[in-house]
Design a protein around this nucleic acid. Structure first.
Length: 430
RNA sequence: GUGGGCGUAGCUCAGUUGGUUAGAGCGUCGGGUUGUGGCCCCGGAGGCCGAGGGUUCAAGUCCCUCCGCUCACCCCA
């Protein structure tokens, strides 16, 4: 048998996050954490794996996600488990399991991490993707809705021009008023069935609100006459929506109303929103969310209201302009000969423990090669110490910008280096 | 799940109507300076041309199949 050399690759739709991208993600995460801290939102981390039931009941049995996109399998005991396709259901499960709703009137939680959906990958869509999620659990106040939108907008706008963003708001109504609209809409769609495309005829049965997303011009023409949720919404829902929008204005967040905005998951009611960005390809939504007051009871919990949102990290990455930050280190130690190289290790450890960024060649290379390495590392200073210097009990400190060199005594060398670097840094800050 | 586009060096890509040993730029390593970086000059390493089959005297180039990537549809962050 001839053996084939097959290089291993990552699973389709699963991506390695290489150091450069990892840095950009860290920046996003750090920014988000700061904003959460200022809003009193605390982190919760739930497992990546849940019993399938959690999602099947939470998201809705007949949604696309549950029907055909979940990574579901049996473990060794035959239990059905699912890699989480979204965060809300798991977080709510945790809140119910630990009865966190008894610990405070309102829980303000965030989490960030990977989600999994078995879809065909394309721009801005992966099988393992990452979200930053926020859930406000226990409040039906419209201010809660507005705060959640605020958080999404505030985080995203740190990374792109606000001109590139469009916030769309809508209300889906509640179990009181939504059925009335649905009934009329179904009737309308049935009567105009012949003028709708195949997709829309199918949507009419599965998820009628989705027909409004259709790009077909013929359908759009028909749909202009279709009943709109807005006109069916009950006074309570209408009042709620009004207050959400008022709060957004008070927060200084620009938005437009989109009466056709629909969410894909079953559990949404009343407020729903999407934050869209330019240049994302077909998937323009960078963040989205809404209110899900009924979800808790679907998971056998008490009737607790909630509102939340998710930011798609990969989509946010697409919005960010790609500029890698130049590398920089405070000091590069170029040591020649075994005596100097050993001595350098003491300085290396000492200086790093002082918080300086110090690099050192792992290989015993020529001075020229080490200088090159120093340059590539973006070294501010380079300490040069070879046999000659060791004999004289001194070392050369080179300023990599000015090329100025000075000779330093080996006594107290580390302390002097710390001084030099720090004074240089404070000068640079001014 | 359905369609379109693309697979040549680590990266971005050339490669004529099929025709000798498959190229460039960048990156990487080394030399030019027996101990001093960037710019410049010189050189090295690095390719079963995605895989398999077919046509042909001859295939990176033409045909078929598969695989992978990618964009879009569906749907969604």
């Amino acid at each position: 048998m001839k053996e084939k050399k097959v290089t291993l690759s990552a699973v389709k739709g699963f991506k390695d996050i290489l150091p450069e991208e990892s840095k950009r993600r860290q920046k996003i995460e750090e920014t988000a954490r700061n904003i959460f801290a200022s809003c009193g939102v605390e982190e919760i981390r739930t497992p990546i794996l849940e019993k399938t039931e959690v999602f099947a009941r939470g998201i809705g049995e007949h949604t696309d996600i549950v029907e055909k996109e979940m990574y579901t399998f049996q473990d060794r005991n035959g239990q059905y488990l699912t890699l989480r396709p979204e965060a809300t259901a798991g977080i709510l499960r945790a809140v119910l399991e630990h009865k966190l709703y008894n610990t405070a009137p309102v829980l303000k939680l965030f989490t960030m991490g990977p989600m999994f959906r078995h879809e065909r990958p394309q721009k801005g869509r992966l099988r393992q993707f990452h979200q930053i999620n926020v859930e406000y659990i226990g409040s039906s106040s419209p201010i809660a809705d507005a705060e959640v939108v605020f958080l999404a907008y505030e985080i995203v706008r740190q990374f792109t021009d606000e001109e590139n963003l469009l916030l769309e708001m809508n209300s889906l109504g509640c179990p009181e008023c939504r059925p009335l609209h649905r009934k009329d809409l179904l009737l309308f769609l049935e009567n105009n069935k012949d003028d709708l495309c195949e997709d829309c005829q199918r949507r009419s049965k599965v998820n009628p609100l989705r027909v409004f997303d259709c790009k077909n011009e013929g359908c759009q023409a028909v749909l202009k006459l279709a009943p709109v949720i807005k006109h069916y919404i009950c006074p309570e829902c209408s009042n709620h929506m009004g207050k959400v929008l008022d709060a957004l204005e008070a927060f200084g967040i620009p938005f437009v109303q989109n009466p056709y905005l629909v969410r894909g998951l079953d559990y949404y009611k009343r407020t729903t929103f999407e934050l869209k960005g330019r240049g994302l390809g077909a998937q323009s939504t960078v963040a989205a969310g809404g209110r899900y007051d009924g979800l808790s009871t679907l998971l056998d919990g008490p009737d607790i209201p909630g509102v939340g949102m998710a930011i798609g990290v990969e989509r946010l990455l697409l919005l960010m302009e790609e500029q890698a930050e130049p590398k920089s280190v405070d000091l590069f130690i170029a040591a020649l000969g075994s005596e100097a190289r050993t001595e350098a290790l003491y300085w290396l450890a000492y200086l790093r423990r002082q918080g300086l960024k110090v690099e050192y060649s792992l290989e015993d290379k020529s001075l020229k090669a080490q200088m090159k390495q120093a340059d590539k590392a973006g070294a501010r200073f380079c300490l040069i110490v070879g046999e000659r210097e060791m004999d004289e009990e001194e070392a050369i400190l080179r300023d990599m910008n000015t090329k100025a060199q000075e000779t330093l005594d080996l006594d107290d060398l580390p302390e002097i280096l710390v001084e030099k670097v720090k004074s240089q840094k404070s000068q640079g800050d001014e």
